[in-house]
Amino acid sequence: MADELISFRDMCARFDVTPRTLRYYEYIELLSPVKEGRARYYGPREIARMTLILRGRRFGFSLEEIRQWLLLYAQKGTREQYQVWIQLANRQLAELERQRAELDATIADLTALRDRTADSLKD
C-alpha cells in the first residue's frame, strides 16, 4: 500500500497547488491524508477527490458546494450524488451563460468606444 501513497510535496507538485492550499483543503475536510507523525500521505481516494475539487473550482463552484457534493457520496451514494451534481451543473451553466452575455456586451461597448475614438483622431 505504501507505493500507492504520495507525499505532501508530491501532491502539491502533481496538482500545481501551494502547500497552504493543500493544508486548507485538509482543514475544511475536503481531504483526509494519512498522517505519520508530521508527514502526510495521499492515496488514490484523496487524489481522486483533489481532481474533483480542482475541476469544481475551475467550473466556478464554491468550496462549500464541492464539500457538500463530496459528502453526499458517503451519505447517500453515487445516484444521489449524480442527481445533485446535475442540479449544480445546470445552475452553474446558467450563471456562466449570464456572465458570457455580460462579457460579450462589455466587449461590444468597448469596441464601439475604441472605434469612435479612433475615428475622431482621423478628423
Rank of each mutant, 00 (worst) to 15 (best):
V34K: 13
K35R: 12
E36G: 05
G37I: 03
R38N: 15
R38P: 10
R38E: 13
A39V: 00
A39I: 01
G43Q: 13
G43W: 00
P44W: 10
P44V: 01
R45D: 10
R45C: 13
R45P: 07
E46G: 12
E46A: 12
R49S: 02
M50K: 03
T51Y: 03
L52R: 00
I53V: 05
I53Y: 03
L54H: 02
R55G: 12
R55S: 12
G56C: 01
R57A: 06
R58F: 15
R58K: 13
G60K: 06
F61T: 00
L63G: 05
E65P: 15
R67D: 08
R67N: 08
R67G: 09
Q68K: 04
W69S: 01
L70P: 06
L70D: 05
L71S: 09
A74E: 13
Q75E: 09
Q75H: 08
K76L: 07
G77T: 04
G77V: 02
G77E: 08
G77N: 11
T78H: 11
R79L: 15
E80L: 14
E80M: 11
E80N: 07
E80S: 08
Q81A: 04
Q81K: 01
Y82G: 09
Y82K: 03
Y82H: 07
Q83G: 07
W85F: 11
W85S: 11
W85R: 02
W85I: 00
W85Y: 12
Q87S: 12
A89I: 02
A89Q: 06
N90K: 11
R91Y: 08
R91G: 13
Q92A: 09
A94P: 14
E95A: 13
L96M: 11
E97N: 06
R98Q: 11
Q99E: 14
Q99D: 15
R100I: 02
R100P: 07
R100L: 03
E102V: 00
E102C: 13
E102Y: 09
D104L: 14
D104A: 12
D104R: 08
T106I: 10
T106F: 14
I107N: 15
A108E: 14
A108M: 01
D109T: 14
D109H: 15
